[in-house]
Amino acid sequence: MSEKVALPKEVAEVIEHLRSLPYYSDDKILEVTVDPADEWVGAKTDALNGVDTMTLASALVNGYTVEQTPHEKLRNYYEANDWLQDSEEMSSTERQRSLGCRQGVRKTLHILGIIVEGINDTTDAK
């Protein structure tokens, strides 16, 4: 079996939406992306426009994984350095490194003016 294809979240969402419709098989999804005759469907499948046809076909046949967005990757890195969780089991050096990583992420986001849910959004309790 071939490897799964990594797709952006928006593309995976369009595929899942179209698959949920009773009249959209995988070959119909490919057909619509190549020649979107129906304007409604064409507008709903905009996320598929930048995907190579062979990549999309491979994803439909072999399956796919959803790529993490840059925000999700950063949040995972940030959470992996959560020095508060197991602070009793961490050495002081590990604790300092972890704290430094988290502070660095927050400071960088502040400088760039970027808000990432779970890191520096207003609902973040940490």
Rank of each mutant, 00 (worst) to 15 (best):
E39N: 10
W40H: 11
W40L: 14
W40V: 01
V41D: 09
V41S: 13
G42P: 01
G42D: 11
G42R: 11
A43Q: 14
D46L: 14
D46A: 14
D46N: 11
D46I: 05
A47I: 01
A47Y: 07
L48V: 05
L48S: 06
N49E: 10
G50H: 15
G50W: 14
V51Y: 05
D52I: 03
T53G: 05
T53M: 05
M54P: 00
M54D: 09
M54G: 13
T55Q: 15
L56R: 10
A57F: 05
S58F: 15
S58C: 09
S58I: 03
A59T: 05
L60W: 06
V61M: 12
N62S: 01
G63Q: 08
G63H: 02
Y64M: 12
T65G: 08
V66E: 03
V66H: 10
V66N: 03
E67N: 02
E67S: 13
Q68L: 10
T69H: 06
P70T: 08
H71N: 08
K73Y: 03
K73F: 06
L74Q: 04
L74P: 10
L74T: 01
L74S: 03
L74A: 04
R75Q: 11
R75K: 13
R75H: 10
R75D: 00
N76Y: 04
N76H: 09
N76C: 04
Y77K: 10
Y77N: 08
Y77E: 08
Y77T: 03
Y78E: 01
Y78F: 08
Y78G: 00
E79I: 00
A80Y: 15
A80T: 08
A80Q: 12
A80I: 03
